[in-house]
Design a protein around this nucleic acid. Structure first.
Lengths: 205, 205, 205, 205
DNA sequence: TATGAATGAGGATTCATTCAT
DNA sequence: CATGAATGAATCCTCATTCAT
């Protein structure tokens, strides 16, 4: 249903669940949560409208489930990248940003949904997802703190820096076109440098 | 109708027009374009549902008109600030960012609408507004180009820098709380520094 | 507002009345009574919506007034034609039909309104107009009766003949195109002959 | 829902379809297409407003479907009657007219809808239905042509005769009352004679 | 007369959801 | 699990009409 991104959610045991979740992300991403109807989702998942309710009890819970998947995938990518990076804060930040950019580019629609449609969730679901997202942000903040502590980052505004970087990276989803001038690798490299510069890391190149 | 922001649109000749536009921004900002009903807007503007259509021919045209006002205000603020700044690129960038942050903080809801609900416009209206927005972005890009030309900015990725900075600034609207720890002035100062750092301007402090 | 028919209602003392009536006939004729809005009528009459109500107290009364004009014009044409005809029933029938066809062709839209939209009137207005129309039909019926009495018409079904003839003539309005193959004169002649044949008048040609 | 006519559309597989179509004909016939609301139709069909849209995608498509049924029934009646008639043009015309009158009287409302509300269809639907109706008219025209060719009909205006006869017959629907003086059989007989006389068929009685 | 602004009622249509099967 | 039919509430928008000017 989304021709350029690989599907975010892979097959699970229940036959249609992944199809529904991916269709939901596509529909909510292109038309907005309130602009997309459950019929649109059903059409995208090639199942019947009423069958959706065998998997998710409501439209809003379906959105929540889709966002949970997206968040989990993002977080695991970022954590894995940090794991594989060197021990110093700049290397870790670089790899974290690169991983994040990779996710945004690969799952552009999911990123848009995660940033724009969060507000349509039940308060509890929203709280849970915000917490989830903050966990990813925490990974960035820990790196910032480390770099500030050991002098690698000299910004006087460390507190908001991680949030700002994540905001800038997420904003990529609103303009990136896979057939555009910038390849994924270059984009990742570029944003990694933006991030380190913003943190006022002395250049090592 | 919006307790924290000053109203974006001031009274004009047509008595209710400003009230409707401000109510629209509030409604679309808090509930989303599709989540807010024309009844909500009417309630906010303290007029009747049907009277809305004496001013704007459709919900989508109402959104377009509201966004035109917001864009115009943002642009005029930024241009005025640049005008008043010194001649060197860093000063100009600093003032441009400060003015932009000022707008975002003061018209948080309008900023949210402008970034999230643009897609619900007719193609022509969207195109016109994107062009409008790009004009503001151009002001930033010219400053970047100037700074790169005279060596004030050393980033090797000048092309996307303006867009990235604007994305980060606009993202403020999604988390800023006027009763939070950060005052408007500090926030503006902070983002100005982020911007200059991202552009790899050698510090002069 | 109607390019092919001369306007049905001529200027009266009150400046806009005729324009409104003609616009009403056009609007009701092309879109139906319920399909046309008072705004459409106002647009056609080149006046404001609210000014309509200075002339006619309601949409339905406006229709009634327009139909009164149309009926009066039709009747006076038919009566005048009969007056001018010879004394024998066939001549009178011929001229009556010719006059009626002339009206239908010249005021096609008004004829359509008179046949299709009568039902949307208040009961009293409808009754008055039906009576009006029946007066015209009576003229035809008297001719039929005369012809039957003196042996000029041999149909055994004299009772319904006039109504049937009028129905056939009115139906012309639903297909006639002024740029078609048939001129007005030929059409009138043709229907006159249909009428006499239907009445089983021995041919005199 | 229609007390005097037998329902036009018989039960089919989809349980409510026939009820909706018959209710639509009744509502459109008594109040006009624009005067009748989908709520009226739903009430007549004893189902909910929204359920209508599970059967027909729009009010206009519902009208189209209803008219298709009416046309088909009319045509099959006329063709069957012609089939059963003798080989000579007058007999065939007589039977065709009798069948047509029978339909008009039996499905008075449907006839009214077919003549008055056709214009509210989408252009394509209208074109399809006009073609449909012309096919019925063709049957009459072929009989006229046959009669003219073999001398049975002496009218010099054969071209428009079929259309005129059909117009007169359809007009019955606008005044016939089943409790009136004229029974169906007499009416059919009477109009058959009108038709033959109009065609200038020498009487054989 | 003439108008622009205003409004309550009602229009067609869509939607999330339920339920019987 | 899967579906087609059903529904009540809500949506955008239009309308005839009124009223202050």
């Amino acid at each position: 249903m989304n021709d350029r991104s690989p599907t975010l959610v892979a097959e699970t045991g229940r036959r249609n669940e992944a199809a529904i979740l991916n269709a939901a992300i596509h529909a909510f991403g292109t038309q907005g949560f309130n602009g997309a109807s459950m019929r649109d989702v059903a059409r995208g998942a090639e199942t019947s409208l009423s069958n959706l309710y065998n998997y998710f009890p409501s439209k809003s819970k379906l959105l929540a489930a889709a966002l949970r998947h997206a968040n989990a995938e993002l977080r695991s990518r970022v954590l894995a990248a940090v794991e594989l990076a060197g021990d110093d804060a700049p290397s870790r930040m670089r790899e974290a940003v690169r991983a994040h950019v990779g996710f945004v580019v690969e799952h552009q629609t999911a990123t848009l949904v995660a940033t724009n449609e969060l507000r349509y969730l039940d308060p509890e679901d929203r709280a849970a997802l915000v917490e989830d997202r903050d966990a990813t942000q925490d990974a960035f903040e820990r790196i910032v703190a480390q770099g500030v502590a050991d002098g690698a980052f000299r910004t006087p505004y460390a507190t908001d820096a991680a949030r700002t970087i994540l905001g800038a990276v997420a904003a990529i989803a609103s303009w990136y076109r896979p057939d555009g001038a910038l390849g994924r690798g270059q984009l990742a490299e570029q944003y990694a440098r933006y991030a380190l510069a913003l943190l006022e890391a002395p250049l090592t190149h």
